[in-house]
Amino acid sequence: MILTPEKDQNLLKSIVEFSYAEYGSALEMLAAAKRAKSPKLKIGYIKHALDEYRHTFLLHKVLSNQVKKGKWKFEREFKFSPQNVLLKGYVDKDGYLVEKLALKKFVEFVYSNEYLAKSSFDWLTKQITDSESIKTLKRIMDDEQHHADDSQETLESIMKDELVHHGMAKKFYEAKFPESKLNKAFKRELFKNKLRTFYYKNLKFLNKIFDPILNFFITCFGRIVNLIVIPVPSDKNLMAKDPKSIL
């Protein structure tokens, strides 16, 4: 679970990020299920994955509900694309956590991140209730006299699941590693989360610095690229071409 909520960011963008985070967790849990030997543990991981998949779906529903109210425009980047879970770093392309971490570290990770997820959803629920956008949304909802928008309810149901996950992870961890302390793991995950938030907050600023440098390189390299002539072999037989050539 990796969350990067930002108060000053568009709420919808945060919901999109939350949905990818939940999707990433679902994939991590499924990967863990596939490697678990005990049938009970396998089922446990799958049930956890099921909840995370459901949350992804529910967050899309929240997003869709917000857009339907007409206050926000659905931007193309909001469209769910499974591969973004890799591009955004919610799943590491070099391997699922369960592949890379020892069981203790993996459970520590799940436990501490479920805790962070719980607090992040708490934050999101507050945003939905208190932010100016939601007030507007509430007004529209009152006008319509319908209860179509169940964003608050949906988020609360997700919260319940997260509490269960957190509780389960804690129970499992304490049973498996009774003498261990989690403080270090909490601090580590919190620090990593803050670092990610810092990175995304400053991405635009970083781009402003690096874009001119990139343009300079493209200008120079572009000239070189234009000089590259891809050879056209005289022999039209494709089976006779050099199979070691990368051109």
Binding site: V225, N226, I246
Partner: peptide
């Protein structure tokens, strides 16, 4: 290399340097 160079060459030749595809 041929796959990457072909699109880059076309893009550099036909688009302004700050173009999204080229970048």
């Amino acid at each position: 290399v041929r796959a990457w160079v072909t699109v880059l060459k076309h893009s550099v030749k036909n688009n302004p340097i700050s173009n999204n595809l080229t970048r």
